[in-house]
Amino acid sequence: MTLIVDHLRIQHGTITAIDDLSFAIEPGELVTIIGSNGAGKTTLLRALSGLIPTASGSASWKGQSILGRRAEDLVRSGIVHVSEGKAVIPELTVAENLELGGIWRKDKTDIALATSEVLDLFPRLGERMKQGADTLSGGERQMLAIGRAMIARPDLLLLDEPSLGLAPLVIEQIFSAIDALRQRLGLTVVLVEQNAISALGIADRGIIINLGKFVTSGSSASLMSDPTLRAAYLGF
């Protein structure tokens, strides 16, 4: 097992945003966590990447607990979080945003290699390196956020709703890029989404949560073919 989440509970004051949640993800898997607005998806990822504390339960990555560690240190252990809402720094250029991804790394040759891989995957970023990130479209910003994460050479990639607010065609591009990345690099990916169709389209498995609680899980194909789930949680 690579990522193990066990009886996890996370509070925002008196609100229980994640309630007794358990799941496990194998190395190299792409698992999507599906839930509607307010289900607790962002809260879960923020706890896994060290941004917020948890109330009880445990979470471990490669046998080591990841709770109580700082976000900036977890990045160094290979856990990289692309946060919600096209997480780029608009005041910096595209090139500087990418540079941030490797800012803590010593291996400059590999940073250059990783950067050129990102630019191969998202050529539009390469054409805009000197521009401010505030001049990018929503889709390009999402590409930049994912690109920055890749330059950190993650083992575990946590993606928070990369499809949010994007046109269907752009979503398709981004999701196929995510798929290509994990195929090529053997990444473990946790993809949090409301857009169940797109997410299950590239995921091996899905976990459905609602109001912070586990609902069900299964292979993408089995979830998609269950009419009750589709009506109740998947929205198609």
């Binding site: 941004l51 900036e72 990289v80 946060s83 720094i89």
Partner: peptide, 20 residues
Amino acid sequence: LALRAASFQPEISRLSGIRV
């Protein structure tokens, strides 16, 4: 770059490994 990034977006900076 770290000084600028941390002043604009501390959270994204931390997620990029910057000790803010």
